[in-house]
Design a protein around this nucleic acid. Sequence first.
DNA 1: CCATAAAACAGACATTTGTCTGTTATGTCA
DNA 2: TGACATAACAGACAAATGTCTGTTTTATGG
Lengths: 204, 204
Amino acid sequence: MAYTSPGKTREKIYDFVRERILSGTPPTTRDVQRAFGFRAVQSARQHLEKLVFEGKLAKVDGRSRGYRLPEFGKASPTQLIPMLGRVQAGELTEAMEDPPEYIMVQTRFDDDELFALTVEGESMLHAGILPGDMVIVRRQPTASPGDIVVALVGDEATVKRYRERDGRVELHPENEAFDPIIPREDGAPFSLLGKVIEIRRSVE
Amino acid sequence: MAYTSPGKTREKIYDFVRERILSGTPPTTRDVQRAFGFRAVQSARQHLEKLVFEGKLAKVDGRSRGYRLPEFGKASPTQLIPMLGRVQAGELTEAMEDPPEYIMVQTRFDDDELFALTVEGESMLHAGILPGDMVIVRRQPTASPGDIVVALVGDEATVKRYRERDGRVELHPENEAFDPIIPREDGAPFSLLGKVIEIRRSVE
DNA sequence: CCATAAAACAGACATTTGTCTGTTATGTCA
DNA sequence: TGACATAACAGACAAATGTCTGTTTTATGG
């Protein structure tokens, strides 16, 4: 490769490596060499090591394809979570599609058990949750007042605002057209599936 | 490793490989070997190749860390898009944080130019877009009536519903407390930044 | 018990890949 | 021009990794 002005090629190498890391696999030194037409492996290595030195890339020494994005892998680990659809026999089961649908999320704690649901109905309209919206839920057996939760009431999963009144649980819709649910009162089986931590809506 | 019932270990290996691929780097055969305490590389390889044969994993032959998730890379490419914050001198510029913040999205067309914005104000309340929500925008110079768009009016970026009336562009809020913006009329510089394709809201 | 299939093991070889030492070319600045 | 820094090149070695052939162990069904 012809001589290029200082830093010019390095920037392109950074972009290349970054793209490759995001698309699934970090490149090898020789991948970079070939991609840029270097006639020596060391040319690629020189740039890569410098990028690491500058802090633009991270690296695992000795291992193949050891280059990483420093902000990634630690700061915000990505996680693939299942898209649950149907409610069957009182329990949310993975909608066995082929292949199953998965959603990519960036989580703070990678040990959380997350899943996604599609919202039906307009009971949470005033909380900005519309029919068709996808809610991302962290599985947990309890909630704090004010949380938006997913609960199983009877055989149906519903999204509601969690409240407590006189020591009793209440599930409040955010729409005057709907009434609050006071689980224990009407004897309907009730269980808390988890807390909504994110709402997503695709337009078109 | 002790003998396990058919398919039992393989399932765990699949989970392991999957996790590793998502977390950034596919494992090597020996990574799998070590992780499961196999005393022979071939034990790991046998399982891996079978997973490929079953279609649960994809693979690039000969290359190191060549295992992939089949549904990925083709069906729904992931893309990292920049989080734009400020509006400066009539143009949206990447909020030069250190490091810059990026959002992971799954796109249908990987050649789209996307960026993310944080919504300020309550003008789109009735469209289910609240202050603090993040909107993901596809850069495009035109829009169709009914689209939710991001436009630059003066020096400010606003999210509005795109309409046309008598051949003139109108930007409609979705909240009675706000008035529509008819760009050409008041002489304010106007430019369409793109169309909102997704809305995300983090709770807590 | 025997046949069969799958799981796990053993040991090796070839390729890929990371790393190293040293040299040559190109641009910048005094 | 000459010192200096960076880019690029050359060739090699060692470790990591993919791959192969064959054997042993374990469970299952007739």
